[in-house]
């Protein structure tokens, strides 16, 4: 398929090159080709406008996305306290060696916590959100109320979500411990302080928000499904479950991709809740917070933090590229 496309593109040039090539040396031939006057639909003005329309976004993209990315990658091989460009010192792979070698204790827990976060979102929160969307799509009574109630946490900023859950989890004054009658006593469950519990406590809070987000996305998708399809399926004798898995779910392929990509992104960029709760200490280490703790603030280990950022980038971009290329390929076939 691609072969024929390439040939088609090369077609006009191909004969020329072959013909000229037989008479003169190669380089001359390549220079000779563009000299032929080409017919263009575009005026000079159009070209300038087009150039600007493509050039400005491209330069913005390069400046804001690629420059920082490349700068991070370069800085990850340096030691720099962030004060004065002359203080940048290249130290090779030391930052990475320190990270993987265990000199920096929060690193491996952070990787583990990011993986747990991803797994919980992928296998619990996202399916739950989709399930709620399917239920709400049934036009049950009060569906608007449920929709708003479930979507509400998404509207709240994560800073507020964090605050709300701290009120629920606090050992001395928190809601759960008050209900259990253990508030302020030594038996109180320390949801945030106990490093065996706190990640799960935070994940509940994060999922609370994530479920609503996925629910809305999926509900919008479900609404767009042609009712004829369902009708046809039911005429063919398919049950509810069969209709969903055999007909609706495959039709929603584009939405599914969006949902999965969003889930991956949301779980890898998890930051706010943890930062608000305890700045990523004590059982809540995650990569994004470690990056912040190293770069922002007085610590100012810019090189080391950049190495962490690069690892986070690789971890986030890797699966998304693999998934997107596979699904786009499947789509075009």
């Amino acid at each position: 398929m691609t072969d024929s496309v390439n040939r088609g593109l090369n077609d006009p040039a191909a004969p020329t090159r072959r013909r000229v090539g037989s008479q003169v040396e190669g380089p001359g031939a390549l220079q000779a080709a563009p000299k032929r006057k080409r017919f263009s639909l575009l005026t000079r003005r159009d070209k300038i406008v087009l150039g600007l329309m493509v050039g400005i976004p491209t330069s913005i993209h390069l400046f804001f996305i690629w420059l920082p990315t490349v700068a991070s990658a370069v800085l990850s091989f340096t030691s720099w306290n962030g004060i004065g460009l002359d203080k940048i010192k290249f130290i090779g792979l030391k930052n990475y060696a320190d990270l993987f070698g265990g000199v920096y204790p929060p690193f491996w827990p952070a990787i583990q916590h990011n993986v747990i976060w991803l797994a919980v979102f992928m296998f619990i929160a996202t399916p739950l959100g989709m399930f709620l969307a399917v239920l709400l799509d049934k036009e049950i009574r009060g569906t608007r109320v449920y929709q708003s109630a479930i979507y509400l946490p998404v509207v709240l900023s994560l800073a507020i979500v964090g605050f709300i859950w701290q009120l629920i989890y606090s050992p001395d004054e928190g809601f759960i411990n008050s209900i259990l009658g253990t508030a302020g006593t030594p038996q109180a469950i320390d949801w945030i302080g106990n490093r065996n519990l706190n990640l799960w406590a935070i994940l509940v809070a994060a999922s609370w928000r994530h479920v609503g987000y996925i629910m809305v996305l999926y509900l919008a998708g479900l609404k767009s499904v042609d009712p004829g399809l369902r009708e046809a399926a039911s005429i063919d004798g398919a049950g509810e479950r069969q209709t969903f898995f055999q007909v609706v779910f495959p039709v929603l392929r584009p939405i599914n991709i969006v949902v999965i990509v969003i889930t991956v992104i949301e779980s890898l960029r998890a930051f706010d809740l943890v930062y608000i709760t305890n700045r990523g200490l004590n059982g809540l280490e995650i990569l994004s917070v470690l990056v912040t703790n190293n770069i922002i603030g007085e610590a100012s280990r810019v090189g080391f933090g950049s190495a962490l950022a690069v690892i986070l980038l690789v971890v986030s971009v890797g699966p998304i590229i693999v998934y997107l290329t596979r699904s786009i390929k499947a789509e075009t076939e």
Binding site: L67, P68, A71, I295, I296, G305, S306, L313
Partner: peptide, 8 residues
């Protein structure tokens, strides 16, 4: 310093 954050 901000560039180093890798954050647009």
């Amino acid at each position: 310093r901000v560039l180093a954050l890798g954050s647009a």
